[in-house]
């Protein structure tokens, strides 16, 4: 109810300003208000001023404003440039004012949350004030009274000093604690739960589990199994006869999954040829008559774009007999890439 009274006190001031000043002064005030963003009162005052000047904005802010019908009619008197849109809006806003009683609770809550936000900011600025905030009710009432008092004398003066810069924007809902420790804790918990959700999407089978502990357990198991897989695979690689190692380094074949690799090699062939190798002899692709469609080619071209890009920018100058050059590859990556592109082409033909 305090919020409501605040609003009522706020209202005559606005009406007075609209009535007393000509339209140019209204524009000036509106610009001042625009400059002071994110202030606690601009939520209420700005839409109303704007609505006088830009009638199309009306529909957006209708739910917030208590006295829209009166305002609209007032601006009806003032400005001659009213369109049919505005008339329609005034019709709508009259119906909205009927609805106002149901939405009173909402707006009141909004006011309290705004006030809480302001108080929170004040607390973060000066921690010595946090002793005040222990009794929520009392402080809230005090604050609102203070706001209502301060509002009438100097609205424009008060607005710019509350510009929140350099603070994390936190808003406490109704009934939540607002001292700085619990605010920080709430932010931390939100962050954790958000990241938990991201992890839940990553780990298979984790979305069926409820509870943080079980989810963590799933994640731990998954990471462990992945690490075990790496160990197992490196064991396998170690036990493989190293003579098989001199792969022609068709790195693309490693990067796509084995079930796709045939397809992709066949369909990559034309694109690789046309961008990288004018020196290579033209080859008749046998395999891709069945599998190559336009969409397929496009998606694979996207997925293998880095290789194609590198190949397109480096002329393929290595002659064909350089297969044994693979063995003294030092850290020159460009040569390496060239060779891979080259042997890539070779590999896809047999």
């Amino acid at each position: 109810m305090a919020a409501f009274s605040l609003y009522n006190q706020h209202h005559p001031y606005l009406v007075d300003s609209v009535v007393l000043h000509p339209k140019s002064s209204i524009i000036k005030i509106c610009e001042e208000l625009k400059n002071a963003n994110n202030t606690c009162f601009s939520q209420f005052s700005r839409p109303e001023f704007r609505q006088d000047i830009v009638p199309i904005n009306l529909g957006v802010h209708q739910n917030r404003c208590l006295d829209q019908s009166t305002k609209v009619s007032l601006s009806n008197n003032e400005s001659n440039s009213l369109t049919s849109i505005k008339n329609k809006n005034s019709m709508e806003s009259s119906s909205v004012s009927d609805k106002y009683e149901s939405s009173e609770q909402v707006s009141q809550q909004k006011v309290t949350s705004v006030v809480e936000k302001k108080r929170k900011r004040r607390i973060m600025k000066s921690p010595s004030n946090s002793a005040q905030s222990k009794d929520m009710r009392e402080v809230k009432g005090k604050k609102q009274k203070k706001c209502a008092d301060k509002k009438l004398p100097g609205e424009e003066k008060k607005l710019p000093e509350e510009d929140p810069k350099g603070y994390i924007h936190v808003r406490a809902r109704r009934g939540q604690a607002t001292d700085s420790h619990s605010l920080a804790e709430r932010v931390r918990r939100e962050k954790i739960s958000e990241r938990m959700k991201a992890l839940q999407a990553l780990v298979p089978g984790c979305d069926k589990v409820t509870g943080k502990a079980l989810m963590l357990d799933e994640i731990i198991n998954y990471v462990q199994s992945l690490q075990n897989q790496v160990e197992f695979l490196s064991m396998k690689l170690a036990s493989v006869n190293p003579m098989f190692y001199d792969f022609g380094l068709d790195l693309d074949a490693f990067m796509v999954r084995p079930d796709q690799s045939l397809n992709s090699l066949a369909s990559q062939l034309p694109t690789v040829q046309q961008c990288s190798s004018p020196t290579q002899p033209p080859v008749i692709p046998e395999r891709n008559t069945s599998s190559l469609t336009a969409a397929n080619c496009y998606s694979l071209l996207e997925s293998s774009s880095p290789l194609l890009f590198q190949q397109a920018h480096m002329p393929n100058t290595l002659p064909q007999g350089n297969g044994q050059l693979l063995w003294d590859v030092d850290d020159q990556r460009q040569k390496f890439i060239n060779e891979t592109g080259f042997s890539n082409n070779l590999c896809s033909f047999h």
Binding site: L233, Y245, M255, S261
Partner: peptide, 13 residues
């Protein structure tokens, strides 16, 4: 990593 290593193992074996 696991996927690429798997592919390499498949290729080698």
């Amino acid at each position: 990593q696991v996927q690429i290593m798997k592919n390499i193992v498949d290729h080698c074996s």
